[in-house]
Amino acid sequence: MADGVGDPENLRGLTYPWVAPEPGGTLEVAPGVLWLRLALPMALNHVNVWALADGDGWTVVDTGIQTPATVAHWEQALDGSLGGRPVWRVVCTHMHPDHIGLAGWLCDRFDAPLLMTRLEYVTARMLVADTGPAPASVEIFCRAAGWETGQIEVNRRRYGQFGRSVAPLPSSFQRLTEGDVLSIDGRAWRVVAGDGHSPEHACLWREEDGVFISGDQILPRISSNVSVWPTEPDADPLGDWLRSIDKLAGLLPDDLLVLPSHGEPFCGVKTRLEQLRRGHDVALRRLERTLARPCRALDVFPALFARPVDDGLLGMATGEAVAHLNYLLRQGRVERRRDADGVDWWRTTDHGADT
């Protein structure tokens, strides 16, 4: 419908009370909370950001990626449904470009402070500055996963893409930490931190009326990417992610309106957290069955992903595969052997005496 309200849709136990606004438009989904949907130039073609009424201005949560189209959508919203009122603060849930891409642009435009957790801000500053050339660790990581020489070369040429998607970040920030309370328009928003998708992801919870800005920590229709990257090849982000899911399942009531960064606002957070936990558990069981014989990271994609992985998704798929493999390695359920060509071969530890 024109006002964005549709018949609630119950899909896999979740209820979706709203239809998305057009890019550049807004929709009020809770008192003082406006939903903006911005375009992304990738398969995941949108990101949701939020404008929270704050006195005679706004606190903005997340910003979209740095592209001319996103800037145009912001200009349309700022001059239109946001009423030409100033942005007092910019809050970023985490450091991925679709969330911080225009943070610096908005902060500069309105002389507004940037609010983030420390690990997210520091990691973003590091990645923006890391423009290349690609370090040797990138090739080592990709070769270990089983990439071909041509794929490694393409990845080397693309190195530094992160910084090109992000406007210059402010040189200072205001730190958010778990349990902090932000007063926005006289209402309290509690910071709830998560881990796994990014190092110190900040969600915002308005407990008085059950509104929860989840960022990428809880998404309704897809599972957030949980990846290992060449900067920390032995990391265990999946372990961090599963602990965060368990934490949120124990903390959050089921009657929240969840405002995610992708997809639509939904109700049924406990059901969704159970689905996310179960999905990874099932994937890990499939992965262990696959590893009854030695495999490279590339070889386990069918056990983890429902669709074929093309070169455009190769980096994220590899990162997620290694995250699952590292999780099992930490638990002693698999072993890893690197051959003379620098390729890692993974296998379950209970394969017996056969080779």
Rank of each mutant, 00 (worst) to 15 (best):
R333F: 15
L298V: 11
V334E: 09
D310W: 12
D7Y: 15
L14D: 00
Q331N: 03
N45L: 01
G215M: 02
D79V: 05
W58T: 07
L27I: 03
A340N: 10
A292K: 09
S224G: 15
R338A: 07
V322A: 05
D281N: 06
Q217K: 08
P97V: 07
A69V: 04
H94R: 14
F301I: 06
P260E: 02
G83K: 12
Q66G: 09
D54E: 15
A283F: 08
V60H: 08
G163S: 10
T271S: 12
I213R: 00
T290N: 02
V90F: 09
L273G: 01
R296Q: 06
T271I: 11
G352Y: 14
T318F: 07
M95K: 09
D130V: 15
A188S: 12
T63F: 02
G239I: 07
E264Y: 02
C107N: 04
D344H: 06
L102Q: 04
G25R: 13
G160R: 05
N10C: 14
C142H: 05
A340R: 15
E320Q: 12
C203W: 04
A323V: 04
P133G: 05
A340Y: 12
C107K: 12
V61C: 01
L251I: 05
D108W: 10
L27N: 03
A20C: 08
V60G: 03
W229R: 15
V61G: 00
A283L: 03
V71Q: 14
L40C: 04
T290M: 06
F301G: 01
H94T: 11
P133R: 03
D7W: 14
W58A: 11
R89C: 07
G268R: 03
G342I: 09
H324F: 11
E153N: 13
D108S: 08
W241Q: 09
L106D: 00
L219T: 01
T231M: 13
L251F: 03
G215S: 05
V258W: 00
D3M: 15
A53R: 14
Q151L: 14
W229N: 09
P308Y: 00
G84V: 05
R333V: 14
P31F: 10
L106K: 02
A249Y: 02
E208F: 01
R278N: 14
L34S: 15
V322C: 08
C142M: 13
D98K: 12
R190S: 09
G332F: 13
P237A: 12
M1S: 07
P294F: 01
P86T: 11
A306C: 10
E139F: 13
A72T: 08
L40H: 06
R243E: 04
V211H: 06
T348A: 10
Q217T: 10
G319L: 03
L176M: 05
D216P: 00
E264T: 09
V91I: 13
D180Y: 01
F305T: 00
D62F: 01
P31M: 11
H201N: 10
D98V: 12
E22G: 10
C203N: 12
L304T: 11
S81A: 10
